[in-house]
Amino acid sequence: MPTTLIFGGSGKVARQLTRQLVAQSHTVHSIIRNPTQVSEIQSLGAKPVVQSIEESNVSQLASTIKQCNPEIVVWSAGAGGGNPERTKTVDQEGAIKSFDACTEAGVKRYIIVSAVDVRDRNKNSYPEWYDEESKKRSDSVWDRIGVYMEAKLQADRNLRIQNGQRELHYTIVRPGGLSNEPGTGKVAAGKVGLGTMVSREDVATVVIECMKNDGTVGLAFDVVGGETPIQQAVKEVVDAHVDTFEGQY
């Protein structure tokens, strides 16, 4: 089974992802910042790597990737949105360093957990599939956590625009509002509205389905709560070649 390296392994989505991957006999390496979390990560069945994304340069991150020797790298790190400076250094600059580190380490498959509605609001009006409620929610989110959304935009934009140089086999998973409720195994994916929260457990399952479905390479798609089984939802995104970030950056 594949070996996966997770950036931001102590996060709630990352923990759900770790549990599921380990249950499927994957080897999981998990980069965390705080050494006090080592035992928790080990209890999930992962191999913790204590390293600061903020303080590490590209070559240091690449060295860690080489040591772990993963087939797949998942970015699920974040500063939590509370500190604007750390949001930029982790969610934006840290993510970009990880893109370059994967290239230096020779790892191609890369999945980033981003966020729904990440887009250049100066360039575009609302996505055409947004209803009035989604537009209101979009404005509210950007008013409250605009620094975070802008950091995610710059990271996703860099991944997309600079990939001709890196040639990563990337997928951008863009979940909506997150809950800690148990997963249902069902979502709505692709061009969706912003109204329905999605459980972190289901987001982790979507990431794993992207690992299994090579048709997701090069795509960015939104995920919220819904009624479509996750495998089918991802397949429908692939079959329709849905890309919700296209034209939004």
Score class of each variant (00 low, 15 high):
Arg119Phe: 06
Gly225Ile: 07
Lys152Thr: 00
Gly177Asp: 11
Gly45Arg: 06
Ala105Phe: 02
Val217Tyr: 08
Gly215His: 04
Thr36Ser: 15
Leu5Lys: 04
Glu71Cys: 05
Glu55Arg: 11
Lys186Leu: 07
Gly195Gln: 13
Lys47Thr: 07
Asn34Val: 07
Gly176Phe: 02
Arg15Gly: 00
Thr205Asp: 12
Leu5Pro: 02
Ala188Val: 06
Asp143Gly: 03
Tyr130Phe: 15
Lys212Gly: 07
Asn122Lys: 11
Val242Trp: 09
Ala79Ile: 01
Ala62Met: 09
Val28Gly: 00
Ile53Phe: 03
Tyr126Met: 07
Ile172Arg: 04
Gly164Leu: 07
Lys12Glu: 14
Val49Lys: 06
His26Ala: 12
Asn158Met: 00
Gly82Trp: 14
Val28Met: 07
Asp139Ser: 09
His29Ile: 02
Ala189Met: 08
Val49Ser: 02
Phe99Arg: 01
Val50Cys: 02
Trp75Ser: 10
Ile72Met: 03
Ile65Lys: 07
Ile6Tyr: 05
Val217Asn: 13
Ala77Asp: 01
Val58Gly: 01
Tyr126Ile: 10
Lys235Leu: 01
Lys123Gly: 12
Met1Ser: 14
Gly146Lys: 12
Val207Pro: 04
Val173Trp: 00
Ser125Ile: 04
Glu54Lys: 14
Gly8Met: 04
Arg121Met: 12
Phe7Trp: 11
Asp91Arg: 10
Gly164Cys: 07
